[in-house]
Amino acid sequence: MKISLLLSEKKHEIAKTWFDLIAGTYPQDTANFLKTQKNRFGNPVGYTISEGIDVILAELSGEMDVARVSRHLDNIIRIRAIQDFTPSQAVGFIFLLKQVIRKELADEIREHQLCDELLKIESHIDQLANVSFDMYMACREKMYKLRANELRNRTSRILKMSNMFKETDVEEKDPAGF
């Protein structure tokens, strides 16, 4: 018996419990909405989380296609990076998966002595959390860049006209001669 096989067999239960825990990081009314509205355009947050964790679970128990996992992880982090969460709350939903696996597979892990394998899977989850934090920072940095660019773009023509703003000319010599 391999833990990856168990993960695969129980993926629906695990995904549901994990999703419910993630939905539980939102206020109760919102959690209900995230769980019940199934239309992907009417409930993009719920859909993105649900789709993302299905992929992450499938890859954890399978080949671990890094590009695929990253894409879906990024979709989730991109939302939580700007929602009303602290940085640890934004990425911490990854650790909730550990709780879910320990709970859902407790009997099997004990019965088949799968602790070593469990540790291995949990290391993968830790690695996902590491990657998530990088993604979180990239999203925050993106926000700062957008804010700066937006300020510039909105008035770029006027600033250009009044000679207050000039496109950077790489050929131009620094007047100070550096």
Binding site: P27, D29, F33, L34, Q37, P44, V45, Q83, D84
Partner: peptide
Amino acid sequence: CADKCHFFIGTGDPKNM
């Protein structure tokens, strides 16, 4: 109307229903 507002859908803040 509760789940039709883009601010509720995006922020998840019930007071935006």
